[in-house]
């Protein structure tokens, strides 16, 4: 008998004829609230992300003096400051510039899904500075709205502020293994 059959047999014996209860979904479901960009900004800032607003992405990126920059293959080329060279290998990069898939206002969360303008997961992990561009139509109100938009078959990374830990006396301290600086550029369209 395989361990699978053994475990499934044990579960069936344990359950007997237990019935599954109905699940009350009376919480705020997807589509029941408006996305509030101001709230997103407030929540991002509260968790120590830096927010920039405006559509001159390249200008904002240049002003951040990102150093050696790595970008995903499908990034909008207009976002790169003119003449700024990029590096191929994320191991050598000081900063990464990506797009996003969804941003959640209520929690101050940005989700990347590995699309060509966001790249492989590792490129947004190793550099110390992550610059992430979010369009207004990508902002949703709350977690259920994000779940409704996301494709679980893609590798997803949910990011809420820079890397942090609560492991020392349960206080949040920013800056452990992931990027220590998170800058979010909210464009106007």
């Amino acid at each position: 008998m395989s361990s699978k059959d053994l475990i499934l047999g044990r579960i069936r014996a344990a359950l007997g004829d237990t019935a599954a209860p109905d699940v009350p979904r009376t919480y705020r479901r997807a589509g029941t609230q408006c996305a509030d960009v101001e709230r997103l900004v407030d929540r991002l800032v509260d968790y120590k992300a830096v927010v920039h607003r405006g559509s001159d992405v390249a200008g904002i990126v240049a002003s951040l003096e990102p150093g050696r920059l790595v970008v995903p293959p499908g990034l909008d080329p207009a976002w790169l400051p003119p003449g700024m060279a990029t590096v191929e290998d994320e191991h050598d990069a000081d900063a990464v510039l990506t797009a996003a898939t969804v941003a959640i206002a209520e929690t101050g969360t940005i989700v990347l899904d590995g699309s060509p303008d966001q790249g492989r997961r590792v490129i947004s992990l190793l550099p110390d500075l992550h610059i992430c561009v979010v369009r207004p139509d990508q902002v949703v109100a709350a977690v259920p709205d994000a779940i409704a938009r996301l494709d679980p078959r893609r590798p997803l990374t949910w990011i809420s502020g820079p890397s942090a830990t609560s492991d020392i006396e349960l206080n949040r301290v920013e800056g452990v293994h992931g990027p220590r600086r998170l800058h979010v550029i909210l464009t106007e369209r």
Partner: peptide, 25 residues
């Protein structure tokens, strides 16, 4: 989970993956 756990609106990172993604991870 995050609100009950670390008392955050959302924990800094959540990773989700389905099997293997060619060329990533």
């Amino acid at each position: 989970l995050p609100r009950a756990s670390t008392g955050e609106r959302m924990n800094p990172y959540t990773s989700m993956w389905t099997g293997v993604t060619p060329g990533d991870g």
